[in-house]
């Protein structure tokens, strides 16, 4: 289906992966985000591009949790798209190999969490039309 394969929305979006959290900045919107839980794994999967089904399968292999995994992963992917952090990728790499991340087997599912901070976004929006002074430079509306 169109948009089924997703990838990071670079270069509009950048991120830094830490052990248990990803910090993501959307330079276009001015919003920044914190991703935790299984979201860290999912975000990593999208680096090169992954299908929704591939992301679900990878999380199913990594975590216990059954159907909750499917629901949470798909909802999280939708949020990434809604926030323009992930976009459709026209050429998805080969299907992901669904396997646990380590030899220790599955671990309990931690639902992905996306926290959004929008306190700075107004600074990046284009300013509305202003008045112009006699020399052609904008001024605040009188």
């Amino acid at each position: 289906m169109p948009g089924d394969c997703l990838r990071w929305n670079v270069p509009k979006v950048t991120s830094e992966l830490f052990d248990d959290e990803v910090v993501i900045v959307n330079f276009e919107s001015g919003r920044y985000h914190s991703v935790r839980g299984a979201g860290v794994v999912i975000w990593n999967l999208l680096r090169e591009g992954a299908t929704r089904a591939g992301a679900v399968a990878a999380c199913r292999a990594r975590y216990t949790g059954g159907d909750q995994v499917d629901t949470e992963v798909l909802a999280f992917l939708d949020r990434l798209v809604d926030e323009h952090l992930a976009v459709a990728n026209p050429s998805c790499p080969a299907a992901l190999v669904a396997s646990p991340a380590s030899g220790l087997g599955q671990v309990p599912f931690e639902p992905p969490v996306l926290t959004t901070f929008s306190d700075m976004q107004d600074l990046l929006l284009l300013d509305p039309i202003h008045d112009v002074d006699d020399d052609g430079w904008p001024t605040t509306a009188k």
Partner: peptide
């Protein structure tokens, strides 16, 4: 100042 060469819609917040 010389006139700005950019358009009125080119100012970011």
């Amino acid at each position: 100042l010389p006139l700005p060469p950019w358009a009125i819609g080119d100012y970011y917040g």
